[in-house]
Nucleic acid binder design. Structure first.
Lengths: 216, 216
DNA sequence: CAGAAATTTGACCAGTTGGAAAAAATGTTA
DNA sequence: TAACATTTTTTCCAACTGGTCAAATTTCTG
């Protein structure tokens, strides 16, 4: 019984150059399609065409549509949580929060497709990511909420709900990726250009910082 | 040549009782399915089953899948803009903004499916709603942004970017509908119950009001 | 370069999809 | 209740879907 040619078979034969290259191309193409149409709305043919190859050829590298989606989703979830992980309990509270917001907004600017992939998954009830949400994510947010709370107790930031604070940072920053069409349409030609992210950064800093300055 | 039975045919024969009832049932079922799977991900069979009828029977009331979606989207867009329309330039600035936020949050709570339908449309680049975005919506937001700006000039609210202020209200409130799974997962059993909307209301009021109090 | 391994292609398949057509059943009204 | 209009069901179809398979081609390695 010879080892099957399919690179995803058991015996983990080292990947060839072509395998690495093509898999990257496929994942990139799939990210385009999935982020735009969601899992069910995306077709293998679409992804294959975007990747510049035939459908059977694509399926030579990834055994199924679900497999591509899974890989995309897990690597994205990891990337997505990085900014929050970096929130440092030993740092200065206000600058820490400020740069968390900045990092999240940069993610929305630099990885809009990943943001939309995530949003699609959420809209569908997170069928593939619910375990991560209830496990890793819940844990991480719980930890950081405690950090925020300790800052509040020390009077370093205003007293507020740490969970909803995190939600509102997520919501406001990801909005610029997920609802990009709307943002552009409303701002129009004049203000909808690349400068919109800097405007958003300025605005959000103002919004959160003034709301969080310790009072009294 | 007799008038065709199909209720969508030209000669606008008055709708029967059954037509009104069934169309409502279909639209409700379609809202469930479209909001969960997006346009491409939804199937007529799914909608028909959710509506408790056969596919050809459903197609007797709506000529095509796209027709249902169009109708759903237009009536939703109208509902969706209502709260902003009500923002009254003659009212007291702070209470006006406060109740705008409250109304938007109530919409997220009471019409989560509509919110998700809208979000799906945005994620896909608004293929069916782009005209509304660039027309009615842009106009409306432009008007209200001017109202906000006049309030700023009168020193009634803090100086900030009125467009991004509106965006951030949209983002934070709709988040509780669109990312509901995530919100629940993170808050857990104890805090993820029905009370989460009141918590959110309190938090958002705090966030925006303190950020908007006139300084000086 | 020869042979082996890896890659690509074309033909194919069974299940699903949106939708059409006509017959059958049901409802409405004179 | 008979005639008519409306509604529902049954049957069907062509296009599309995710995926398989063997053959042909290309790339790698000794």
């Amino acid at each position: 019984m010879t080892v099957p040619a399919n690179p995803r078979a058991k015996a983990p034969r080292p990947k060839t150059r072509i395998q690495r290259e093509k898999q990257d191309v496929i994942l990139d193409a799939a990210l385009n399609v999935f982020s735009l149409h969601g899992f069910r709305g995306a077709t293998i043919d679409q992804i294959a065409e975007a990747a510049g190859m035939s459908k059977p050829n694509l399926l030579y590298y990834f055994g199924s549509k679900g497999e591509i989606h899974r890989q995309l989703l897990t690597s994205m979830l990891d990337l997505w949580l990085d900014p929050l992980r970096e929130l440092d309990s030993d740092g200065d509270p206000m600058p820490e929060i400020r740069s968390y917001i900045r990092r999240k907004l940069e993610m929305a600017r630099d990885f809009p497709r990943e943001s939309r992939l995530f949003a699609n998954e959420m809209l569908q009830g997170a069928p593939h990511a619910i375990d991560v949400l209830e496990g890793e994510l819940k844990q991480l947010v719980g930890d950081k909420a405690q950090v925020l709370e300790s800052w509040m107790q020390q009077g370093k930031i205003a007293r507020t709900d740490p969970y909803h604070l995190i939600f509102s940072i997520w919501a406001t920053t990801q909005h610029y990726a997920d609802f990009d069409v709307q943002v552009r349409a409303v701002l129009g030609k004049d203000r909808g250009g690349e400068g919109r992210f800097e405007d958003a950064a300025r605005y959000l800093e103002h919004l959160f910082m003034d709301g969080l300055l310790p009072r009294g």
